[in-house]
């Protein structure tokens, strides 16, 4: 459960400081600080609307924060102001790949085409090489024989595994998961979580937004609990999920563990 990389001296991969974001006069993120060590899994939890998705989107520049900074170790650093453009934020995207709640696969492309699109069109890798890699990644998640199917021919769980493979194929230094199992039928959740767990064990660095607290406890090195745009509590999963200090965390965890 705890990885070697969880030690304090693990290299920092990503440091986000003072992320602030408003939509109109609605302040969605107040001042978010996050730090992720190489190989670490950070689970972001919190009530719906607390700003988890917005944090993820700020980390890859999909959303432009009004203030704050995102810095990758040996990589790009972007200091955001209200004048930062999409183009300036784009450098962050070469570092991370995102897995969406509703997959967002490309419906007009086959599974294989979905996976190689980024490597071939963006990273300009050789097509044959990209295909070989895509095939082995698909085989890993048990979807080798689906390579020529279209997304609509797959179940939700299969689509999400393709979504994960599409992200992996880019060889990012950071994986961002936004509630990857929230849209799935309950019996399909396990297949996807198993893949994420394997990736965590392999040493991928990831930020995972999830409501699956048991899973978060299993894979995460650190839990960050957010509410109303601020980090309320953070720490080791055993502490935050078992013996939370903050009252809001206590209520949230209690509600998720005892839904009735």
């Amino acid at each position: 459960m705890s990885h070697a990389s969880n030690s304090p001296e693990a290299t920092v991969l990503l440091k986000a400081t003072g992320l602030q974001k408003s939509f109109g006069d609605h302040e969605v993120l107040t001042s978010i600080d996050l730090q992720i060590g190489k190989g670490q899994v950070l689970a972001l939890i919190g009530p719906s609307g607390s700003g988890k998705t917005t944090v993820l989107r700020c980390l890859n520049g999909l959303e432009i924060p009004d203030g704050g900074e995102v810095a990758f170790d040996k990589g790009p650093t972007v200091s955001f102001t209200s004048k930062t453009t999409q183009r300036q934020a784009q450098v962050l995207r070469s570092q991370s790949a995102m897995v969406f709640q509703n997959y967002n696969l490309f419906p007009h492309m086959t599974v294989l085409e979905n996976v190689i699109e980024g490597p071939v069109r963006v990273q300009k890798r050789k097509r044959a090489e990209a295909i070989a890699e895509a095939e082995s990644l698909l085989a890993r998640v048990g979807l080798a024989e689906k390579r020529d199917q279209y997304p609509h021919q797959l179940s939700g769980g299969q689509q999400q595994r393709v979504g994960i493979v599409r992200a992996l194929a880019l060889k990012p230094s950071l994986l961002l998961f936004d509630e990857p199992t929230s849209a799935l039928d309950p019996e399909l959740v396990g297949d996807v979580l198993r893949v994420i767990k394997e990736l965590a064990d392999e040493g991928w660095t990831m930020v995972l937004v999830t409501h699956e607290l048991a899973f978060a406890r299993e894979v995460a090195d650190e839990i960050v609990f957010m509410d109303q745009g601020v980090v309320v509590e953070r720490g080791h999963p055993d502490v935050v999920l078992r013996a939370p200090q903050n009252e809001r965390t206590q209520q949230f965890v209690h509600r998720l563990l005892n839904p009735f």
Partner: peptide, 18 residues
């Protein structure tokens, strides 16, 4: 075309034009 398609393109590193 759903907004998520634009975002999926951006997250795999594509420019707006691509």
């Amino acid at each position: 075309v759903p907004k998520g398609q634009w975002e999926a393109g951006y997250t795999i590193g594509m420019s707006r034009t691509l």
